[in-house]
């Protein structure tokens, strides 16, 4: 029984909405702005997503157009853009998870192992910095550092023979994913490591001592003490990532797009934007809504899948 409950709070038979409001009215007032905002800005657009099944009619508004059923979904699935956008989105997503996800974990373990406190602090503070750089600035940094002629880092990569002499890292489509994922790691690795460092700092020191006595070397200590301590955090973050698998960030990709790499860089979110605000021709609102809705449903399925698998395997999940 909670202590702040008033004595008159007894079991009532039929509980109406009013009853709930009456009981906690002060808390409801504190929640009200957030609840209303979410309703207007999130739930009402969800209702508006029915536009995906209607022909958009400028005069009659979002709910007024003729019902066309799955017409726009069929149109999207049968267009060439479907496979292009889906493949690009999945490629970028999976590469991000595969490479960007482990990076902060490794960094956290490295930082945690450093013995010289001054160096540890310096490194920790430095790796946070890129997080504060805006996407616009980040993309323009990529443009100068990896420029085809005279880009300092593209010259370095060519010198090390990692890329061929004639490579144009910003223009050729096969490099797009690597530029995207690499810059993402550079920007957010340090920031994302904070949560893992926090998890590591809560590991019981006695465990280390016991392992040392048992003759475990430092590598074994990392694998058998530190890594298991990180698993719950890793699982939760991984599930949350899976729920966004088709939500590859619009911001950076849109800014990185150019006419040369478009075949690799057109993802679902940028495609939706180009349908909604095309450079030429009329906007295709219904089609854009349908594509958006499709993304949402797929994301949701991935989230549920990841959650179920995680619950089966590790016993911890989101819901």
């Amino acid at each position: 029984m909670s202590t702040t409950a008033k004595p008159k709070r007894m079991k009532t038979g039929g509980r109406s909405v009013l009853w709930y409001l009456q009981q906690d009215w002060q808390l409801w007032i504190m929640l009200l702005p957030a609840v209303i905002y979410i309703f207007i800005f999130c739930y009402m657009p969800m209702y508006g997503a029915q536009l995906a099944f209607r022909k958009y009619d400028f005069a009659k508004g979002i709910y007024g157009g003729d019902w066309v059923g799955l017409e726009y979904f069929k149109q999207y699935f049968s267009s060439t853009m479907f496979s292009t956008t889906l493949v690009n989105t999945l490629t970028i997503s999976f590469c991000s998870i595969l490479f960007s996800f482990p990076a902060p974990i490794v960094l956290a373990i490295i930082i945690n192992q450093l013995k010289v406190q001054k160096w540890k602090r310096t490194l920790q503070t430095t790796v946070y910095i890129p997080y504060f750089i805006s996407t616009v600035v980040l993309v323009s940094m990529l443009n100068v550092l990896f420029a085809k002629n005279g880009g300092v880092l593209s010259d370095l990569l060519k010198f090390l023979h990692i890329v061929p002499e004639k490579a144009n890292l910003l223009g050729q489509r096969q490099y797009f994913v690597w530029m995207y994922v690499g810059s993402g790691i550079w920007q957010s690795m340090g920031w994302n490591s904070i949560i893992y460092i926090a998890a590591l700092s809560s590991v019981d020191i006695q465990l280390y001592d016991a392992a040392k006595i048992d003759g475990a070397n430092v590598w074994q200590r990392v694998m058998h003490i530190e890594f298991p301590a990180l698993v719950p955090t890793i699982m939760i973050l991984l599930i949350m990532n899976m729920g966004n698998i088709l939500n590859v960030g619009f911001d950076k990709i849109y800014l990185m797009q150019n006419t040369l790499n478009l075949k690799s860089s057109e993802v679902i979110s940028t495609y939706v934007y180009s349908l909604m605000a095309p450079k030429t021709g009329a906007p295709q609102f219904s089609m854009a809504t349908a594509v958006g809705l499709f993304t949402n449903v797929v994301n949701f399925i991935f989230l549920l899948l990841a959650n179920t698998i995680s619950k089966r395997v590790t016993g911890s999940g989101l819901m």
Binding site: P45, A49, L51, G292, N299
Partner: peptide, 15 residues
Amino acid sequence: TMYFSGGLVPTYMQI
């Protein structure tokens, strides 16, 4: 709302 949204166009129209 973290995992489901109306999408860009319906949100735009609402605003």
